[in-house]
Amino acid sequence: MSAALGLAISHPLSFDERLSKSIEYLSYKARSHDANAAYDYVSAIVSEQQKYALYKEMFPKEWSCSRASLYRRGQYEKYSERVNELFHLINERCFPLLEFAHDDPESEFEHFAIPPLNVDLCCEEIYFDNLRTSYAAGLIFYFPDEAWEFLNERLKVSRGAFPEINSDPHPNVWNRKSGSLLGELLRLIDHSTGNPWLDSNYCQTADWYSWDRETIDELTKEFKAANEVFERLGCLDEQIEADPKKMLSALINFWNNGRLPDQRRVKRKRRWRKIQ
């Protein structure tokens, strides 16, 4: 029987795993040998094999210790337990793969989307109380009435005490090389950071990503960078809360005229060193 199933005696598979392989084989043989079914089966095998190779390459230690089956279906039913293990490893160690619409056991991950980390300003209602102070301050350029109302309540500042805001920002705002926190804040709010985790929203998610080492590494790197952006905003929050009048004036001046106070650059450099 085992020879008929292609199971050589010398194979180091456990009984459990041999049984799973046999069940997989017999259930395939019991189905009609329809070309479409065979096509889907081969596509699934190739896809799983590519993921096994990725698992082995990215997490060699976990691969060699793994007891997860290469045959039995896992939590995400279209994939083996071993591939499911890879999904969880990436979710835990690289980026939140499973948090966004991936809790359905029938989910397919051949091409996957990533959950936006930024506030959705497109269709979602904005809850200012849940926002960072700096982010709420930056919204005076996009949702002035609500933002000023919130800032008035939180920081006791009123719109009339500040210069008029131009309808369009100064081009310097988009200059990423300036290295300013104010610029980073405004680009974050505008969803134009260049980071897929920060530039997508629920109405228009980022691209669909595929399973290859380069993509996984790039998304991991960008996820880390996105979190660092939020960490750096903590510094700006402190500055705005300490002196809201001065900081909001600086922010409006930057938006209107593209000019940054030198102090902003100095403080950011100090903060960077601290993080590193």
Partner: peptide, 18 residues
């Protein structure tokens, strides 16, 4: 159809042999 033949071939191999 060649997919049927390849499916049969893949069925017989060990998935751990990547």
């Amino acid at each position: 159809n060649p997919a049927i033949l390849l499916a049969e071939e893949f069925m017989r191999r060990d998935a751990a042999d990547l």
